[in-house]
Design a protein around this nucleic acid. Structure first.
Lengths: 179, 179, 179, 179
DNA sequence: CATGAATGAGGCTTCATTCAT
DNA sequence: TATGAATGAAGCCTCATTCAT
């Protein structure tokens, strides 16, 4: 009796939970230990095969982690002010330094996936940049991609230091004003 | 007995030449193929053991290569004008992107060696920065280390693009002027 | 209560159909892609569990496929003439080279199953052989099993070549005549 | 004293011995356990890397083992009589059944190496075959490759049985006589 | 001193089999 | 009963490091 009541049915829940565990573990491992898949499964407490079911290739996992970061950044870009957004983005990026450091040398920058993500990010930032330009707040030779470059360089370049990045961003923003 | 008789004494020159060969090979390999020690010995045409005699650990070789890069940058900093130097440094750095990309993820940033190199670099840049400050050309809250950070970020940050770095540096330099 | 009421009883037909699908898929996969169970379920469009319900071990599937091949060969042996049958059998075997190549290294030749199948095959060929012997067409030291060996060797031995097997079979048949 | 006397110099000896150990281990493993490289190193009592230094790819090891078999067969073919040779070859092949069974599914038959070995073998047998043909002992439509096929089929085909192979070879040889 | 063979830990990946739903 | 997710043993291979000659 009660076969149709929503009791004790959970198979998909497991799967989703495992995927989440793997992504979380990956972020943690990447933040501190490099990019070993073995380390990820170990930390997730799951079998090797499970990782491969969810992410059939190395790249697939890296990309999934990366995509999530881009999403967060994209969400931020709904700000309506370029300067506010750049400051906020810098703060958020400071949070992820270890992970980016591990991920950067391991991602295949030629993959179509990468181009798509860049396009998404650029689109999100372009709105802010165009509005600032229209308002006469910035020079026109600086593109949305350039703005990303500055943020990424200040956050993840060799020698980057979160406690100085804000100051340097401000200098850059000053320089950005027309004249 | 007779340790000091001039019998078949291998000249010091040989040793120095091998060291040089290894460093050169390492720079070439790092520039194009990643950071495999085997590739280095292969390209140097020397045995594994010889590599280990000169550089007893992985890290030691990486550091030796790194030190040489710092030297070149340091030499450049004998310029007498901050802006000229920054522009020149950017150009030089563009030259070494592959190598830095291979080296960065592999260097232990905590090593005391690293602090020493930074200090050397900072000392070299400080002169330029202090002179610019004295001449009222730049704001005082920017340190010599900050200047390095900007150069490194624009050159080697994720997304860095040599063809845009110059433009971005100019924006930054503009922002650097007092007021 | 009501175990025997006609509620949603899955028809036997389904089960039989799935078994058939799996066997067909297995033959196709073995013919071209090796002997991976995963490939079989994928091609059959069924779940892993279903495969295991029908064939509780790897070996069981292999044997079922093998048994089917034996059946076909057995059916052929209703010919009434040894030479005609051997020629026809050779032609049929040429058809299955890929599958046999995949199956052979994977079957456990010690299994009792194997003895049974051999016995079946031997029984089928024995009739032909005995009749040929009675008619004075062949030497008596050659058994039915020997005849199978020759066919299998010419078809599936290393270096076997369908375009030469017929010629070689004819030589063998010539040699088989008494005197 | 005595640095120049041939004492305590043995490095190459080690290498050659290890290579031999690996080949021997490989033959033993292939004869009984399939074709796992791990099993080979385990049986040889050597490290993984040593196997890879001597045989940089899977194929390299398989080919080295295979080449040795071909050599033995080739040496045999210095017989001056086709029938004697075929009988002797059959006896030798009986010795290697397990190994061939393991090796056959794993060798890349398209590799140039394979073509070379076949050519060597064919060349060796052709002499015997041509002499027999000139002496009017065999039909002319049978090639040296065909002779190899028969031997291989009788020795290594599915169902092959050393105790019957001799009888079957004799039937074939009878059939081979002109008329 | 130079050489390069040997070592083995560690990472990657596949796939037969089990098991929860 | 069917499904497919999870598991983990087992194989492959690379490469930093050691060590015998």
């Amino acid at each position: 009796m009660g076969e149709d009541t929503p009791v004790a049915r959970k198979p998909r829940a497991d799967q989703a939970r495992n995927r989440e565990r793997l992504l979380t573990a990956a972020r943690e491992v990447f933040r501190t230990d490099g990019a070993s898949l073995e380390a990820v499964t170990r930390r997730a407490g799951l079998g090797t095969g499970t990782l491969y079911r969810h992410f059939p290739t190395r790249e697939a996992l890296f990309q999934a982690v990366y995509a999530r970061e881009v999403e967060e950044l994209e969400a931020l870009a709904r700000e309506d002010d370029l300067e506010t957004w750049m400051t906020a983005a810098l703060a958020m990026m400071a949070t992820k330094k270890g992970m980016v450091t591990a991920l950067a040398p391991v991602l295949d920058k030629e993959a179509p996936f990468f181009t798509e993500q860049s396009a998404r990010m650029t689109a999100a930032v372009s709105g802010l940049r165009d509005r600032a330009l229209a308002a006469g707040q910035i020079r026109d030779e600086i593109t949305a991609d350039d703005l990303m470059r500055v943020l990424l360089g200040l956050s993840y370049g060799p020698g980057a230091d979160a406690s100085r990045a804000g100051v340097l961003l401000n200098v850059f923003l000053d320089g950005l004003r027309p004249r």
